[in-house]
Each structure stands twice: as structure tokens, then as C-alpha cells.
């Protein structure tokens, strides 16, 4: 098994912290992940809203770009993961669509055999392929005392995941118990963050975001772990406006799970992209892990 990496557009700019931490963690774990050359946008939800064939073809280009050396394509972003996976499935199961996508790809000199590339989410790869033993072995800074609220959101666990329960996923919960964190089992961990609702109906989007923050706060979480740029953006960037709108005082840092995994593996916080989030995470983490962290850096 060799892994190709599809960062996705968000990780290039808005979610650079995710990209930085993914690369740092993968390196620390001694794992190979090769960025797919010249990948293009997965189209988010937007192409599918307009033209299914264009959507499928645009996405299929990425699958076609995976060379013979690689058989796994790893995506950290929820939407990219779903779109890549859905496209592979559509091509495999819908001969009419496949015939047309084949023609479109051919116009660019490419071809793709459905099923050749296994589209995987990063969490699945870390959890299943690298696994508990290897990760536990590399923990130098246990997250003891830190209450983390794993947030799965929607598109990773539904509908095509096959690696966790779509209603009540547990893999990220489990992984953080390996790291020694106190994992908060709160009821909204796979509820919707609102996605692009912020651009359609802002007030309703605020309400969706508030529900997540409220539940995590009710369960006394120190921070929320997420694994999708959209979720991070919604809960982090809009947290201030949610507070203004509802007159609440949430101050919950929203970090990528790879950032915290990186901390546990003893990677320098700067290399993990901390500081880019609007609700600062570092002070909270330091306060909780104090003493221990000092000891570890020595």
C-alpha cells in the first residue's frame, strides 16, 4: 500500500494549520504520504448542484492523476473525501455516467478505472493503518487532564464512510484515549456545523453553531477537535458573532485533531500551525498540560 495525499484547496490557505499539522504528524510517525501532483479542486458541493457530469469529471481527473505507484488517496477534508469517494462509486455503479466521464477524461488525455484507487479519510488511515500500538509508542506528551470534545461533523462519517458508525462515531474518541486525553462523550458530535449555511441564512447558521458550542461547553470540554476545514471555520471564525448574537460567552478553541495529535507526539506547537485559530488554543492547552509540558521539553 502506498499513499497519495490530496490536501484540497482549503488546506492551501484558510486551513494551513491542518496541512502543516498533517505533514508534521505523518513525518513524526515515519509514514509516507506523497502529495498528488497538480491536483484540482474537488468542487465542494457546488458542482453537484449545477451539473453532475461536470462535477464527476472534474473530480475524476484527480483519481486519474494517481500514478501506478500509489493505490490509496488520502484526503483530510470532509468534502474532498466524500466527493472523491462518491465519484469512484458513481463510476463503478452507473455505467451511463461512467461512459460519459470516460469521454470527458479522454478529452484531457486521461483515463480512470473505477476501484483502482482507494479513497481514504486521514482519520481512517491513522486509526486503522498506523494503529493504536504505533501511535501509543510515539506519545511523549500525554494529554492527561485535557478535556477534548471530538467533533466528526457530517460528511466523513456519512454516508460512504464504511469505517465508523454514521450516527455515533467513536474512532476519534478512541484515538484520543490512546493519547491520554479525557474524551468528552457529548451528543452532538456528528451533528451538522451548518456547512455553507453561513452564506445562505446567517442567523440559522449561527443557531447550528451555537448548538455545538453549547453542548461541548455543557460537557465541560476544554476544546473541540475537528477534522474538516469547514467545521473549523464555522465554529472558530463565527464564534465571536455567535456570542454577540445570542449574548453567550463561549471561548472554545477549535483545533484540528492532527494539531493535538502533534502535541502528544511532542512536536513543536509552531510547526503544528497553532496561532492561526481566532479563539486561541495555546493558552488553554498550556494551562492544562503545564508542569507536564515543561518536563517533556527538557
Amino acid at each position: 500500500m502506498k499513499y497519495a495525499y490530496y490536501p484540497g484547496c482549503s488546506l492551501e490557505s484558510g486551513s494551513a494549520a491542518y496541512d502543516m499539522s498533517v505533514r508534521a504528524v505523518i513525518e513524526q510517525l515515519g509514514f509516507g504520504l506523497d502529495e498528488l501532483d497538480d491536483w484540482n479542486c474537488c468542487g465542494a458541493t457546488e458542482y453537484f448542484s449545477q451539473n453532475e457530469l461536470v462535477a464527476t469529471s472534474v473530480i475524476a481527473r484527480n483519481l486519474a492523476l494517481v500514478d501506478d505507484q500509489h493505490d490509496q488517496l488520502v484526503a483530510p477534508c470532509a468534502a474532498c473525501f466524500l466527493n472523491l469517494k462518491k465519484t469512484d462509486k458513481l463510476m463503478a455503479e452507473q455505467p451511463k455516467i461512467r461512459a460519459k466521464v470516460d469521454q470527458a477524461l479522454a478529452a484531457g488525455g486521461l483515463r480512470y478505472q473505477p476501484g483502482r484507487v482507494h479513497v481514504r479519510h486521514l482519520l481512517d488511515v491513522l486509526y486503522t493503518d498506523i494503529g493504536e500500538e504505533a501511535i501509543r509508542a510515539k506519545v511523549v506528551q500525554p494529554l492527561t487532564g485535557l478535556r477534548v470534545a471530538p467533533y466528526y461533523g457530517c460528511q466523513i462519517v456519512r454516508p460512504l464512510n464504511g469505517f465508523d458508525n454514521p450516527e455515533y462515531p467513536m474512532k476519534l474518541d478512541e484515538m484520543f484515549t490512546w493519547l491520554g486525553a479525557e474524551v468528552v462523550d457529548y451528543p452532538v458530535k456528528a451533528h451538522c456545523c451548518g456547512g455553507h449555511m453561513t452564506q445562505i441564512s446567517e442567523e440559522h447558521a449561527f443557531e447550528l453553531i451555537r448548538r455545538l458550542l453549547q453542548s461541548a461547553a455543557d460537557y465541560r470540554a476544554d476544546l473541540i477537535l475537528c477534522m474538516c476545514p469547514m467545521c473549523q471555520l464555522n465554529m472558530d471564525m463565527y464564534q465571536g458573532r455567535v456570542n454577540n448574537f445570542f449574548n453567550t460567552k463561549f471561548k472554545l478553541p477549535i483545533v484540528y485533531f492532527t494539531q493535538m495529535l502533534g502535541v502528544a507526539l511532542g512536536i513543536d506547537m509552531k510547526k503544528l500551525g497553532f496561532g492561526k485559530e481566532l479563539v486561541a488554543a495555546e493558552p488553554v492547552i498550556r494551562a492544562k498540560l503545564e508542569g507536564q509540558m515543561a518536563a517533556a521539553t527538557k
Partner: peptide, 9 residues
């Protein structure tokens, strides 16, 4: 029923 939850709104 879609869900039963203790997450109060």
C-alpha cells in the same frame, strides 16, 4: 422519531 437527545436548546 428522528432522534432522542439530551442536548437542550
Amino acid at each position: 422519531v428522528s432522534e432522542v437527545t439530551d442536548a437542550a436548546r
